[in-house]
Design a binder for these strands. Structure first.
Lengths: 197, 197
DNA sequence: CAAAATTATACTTTTTTAGTATATTTTTGT
DNA sequence: ACAAAAATATACTAAAAAAGTATAATTTTG
């Protein structure tokens, strides 16, 4: 059926755009390049999207939603605080939780008025939803209530960047100690209040 | 003096180009963008380089030479095989040993005849120099002679990619074992022949 | 202060990209 | 197999971006 073919090509355009935009931002990627890589003709592209900006917006929204969804599902697994945090960090490492910096910058540096507002508002909205999820998890005792959700997010961010840090090999020498510390922190430092059990 | 100012700006252009080209390749980077980021006027740019291609070539050559130099100095430290390999892997992790893939691709995909040959020849030349260095190290018993230099290079490459692999967190669970194995391999698996001592 | 270097500006030319029209081919449902 | 719908290749125009240059003004340096 028409819609099925459509969605096949549509999906191809989206996933290719995601890949390229993630790496280079959208300014550096031409529609033609995108079409070649997605194996879609330019005409087909224009059947689905009026221009590159609208495609970029779509990618942005989709990724935000997908990120939030993954985030939610982790929090709803009701695993231990350590396990939950570990999964969140892993999500960040995969790059599935955050919008690429280069991609984001192209929105901010774009001249079209309103586009900047679009991402700012969307980003804020996504952020608020995540915070809300964490609060709910706290209510369910997945995390201690004594930590502010915002801090928890920054904490997992910091952990992810620690791990991707290229000085990794150096710290391999004493990796055993580091892992021990990290594990301990996850297991006891962030647990739900024990006394309230 | 003129040369000093010149070399200051010149160096600024080069380091900025390195940074941008590494990330995006040179096709996606405009001279204007480069100049803005390097805080150099376009006129100054054209005082040093006739065009972007020549700059890209210069960056390529410099990086190749710098990489080889670092590589050499590691091999000449006469550390243990394990320590030496560790340092080589670290070099690869820093991205100082290899030319960026995006950067390289722009050379290959460029229409200018001769440019493709330029990199192919330069790459080959750099590769041969590295192999030569390894052979020399083998003569000095830094590495066992029973491994082919080419294999050693691919091995360190594989190790580096293992470490940057985003499944790192997963393997954290049994990281202790992995490190033990890796350390053992480095210490005993690649050492110079013991009997010949 | 004078010479050299660097920059800002403004400009032309060239190249790239965006977007569209149309004829042709491929795919799909029946 | 056939008709309708979808997708593509091609070729094109318009618009935007990038390359490259000339010149006057400014900054830096000895």
């Amino acid at each position: 059926m028409a819609t099925e073919i459509a969605s096949k090509k549509y999906a191809l355009i989206l996933s290719t755009a995601r890949e390229l935009f993630w790496k280079y931002g959208f300014k550096r990627v031409s529609i033609e390049e995108l079409c070649v890589k997605a194996k879609v003709s330019k005409m087909t592209f224009y059947k689905f999207f009026p221009n590159k900006i609208e495609l970029a917006k779509r990618v942005f929204i989709n990724e935000s939603e997908a990120g939030l969804k993954k985030f939610k599902s982790i929090l709803h697994e009701n695993k231990s605080p350590a396990e939950t945090l570990k999964k969140i960090v892993q999500l960040k490492l995969e790059g599935s939780a955050n919008i690429s910096k280069d991609f984001l910058l192209d929105f901010y540096e774009n001249n079209d008025e309103g586009l900047k507002d679009f991402v700012m508002q969307a980003s804020r909205s996504a952020w608020l939803k995540i915070i809300k999820e964490i609060r709910e998890a706290q209510r369910k005792r997945v995390f201690t209530s004594s930590i502010r959700p915002e801090l928890l997010m920054h904490f997992s961010e910091a952990m992810a960047s620690m791990i991707t840090n290229k000085e990794l090999l150096e710290y391999y020498a004493s990796a055993h100690d580091l892992i021990k510390e990290l594990t301990h922190l996850m297991a006891y430092g962030l647990g739900a209040d024990k006394k309230s059990k």
